[in-house]
């Protein structure tokens, strides 16, 4: 019983580390793409890094230190998009996105602008 559990655990660990390695390889490719000449590819890489989310953050934070100003700006936007709520202020546009992505809308209403609130 214990042996079976240990084997299952080992299999899980191998699968998890394989997943991590895949994430790292994907992030490395995207970072390379982010510094390339093709503007569309840079945009796509930025969006893709946001999709990878928190697992990409340690590598991104290291890359920020060495990046040129354009790439640095993009990487900082990725960090913000992953670590902060992605607020928008245009309700009509939000409704279009919500319909397209089949998501509900959360409206937070307060006294104060985004970034200037309690």
């Amino acid at each position: 019983m214990r042996q079976t559990t240990m084997k299952a655990l080992a299999a899980l660990l191998v699968a998890a580390s394989f997943g991590l390695a895949q994430d790292e390889a994907r992030v490395a490719t995207l970072l390379e793409q982010l510094g390339g000449d093709d503007v569309e590819a840079r945009e796509a890489a930025e969006a893709e890094l946001v999709k990878v989310g928190r697992p990409a953050l340690p590598v991104i934070r290291k890359a920020i230190l060495k990046a040129d100003s354009e790439v640095k700006g993009r990487l900082e936007r990725v960090v913000k998009a992953v670590t902060e709520p992605r607020w928008m202020t245009d309700l009509a546009k939000a409704k279009e996105i919500a319909a397209r992505e089949k998501k509900p809308i959360l409206v937070f209403s307060t006294i104060g602008d985004v970034g200037g609130y309690v």
Partner: peptide, 13 residues
């Protein structure tokens, strides 16, 4: 919030 909703900020004053 980011995964499940489209987020809107409204300043009501």
């Amino acid at each position: 919030l980011n995964a499940k909703f489209v987020l809107v900020w409204n300043n009501h004053a």
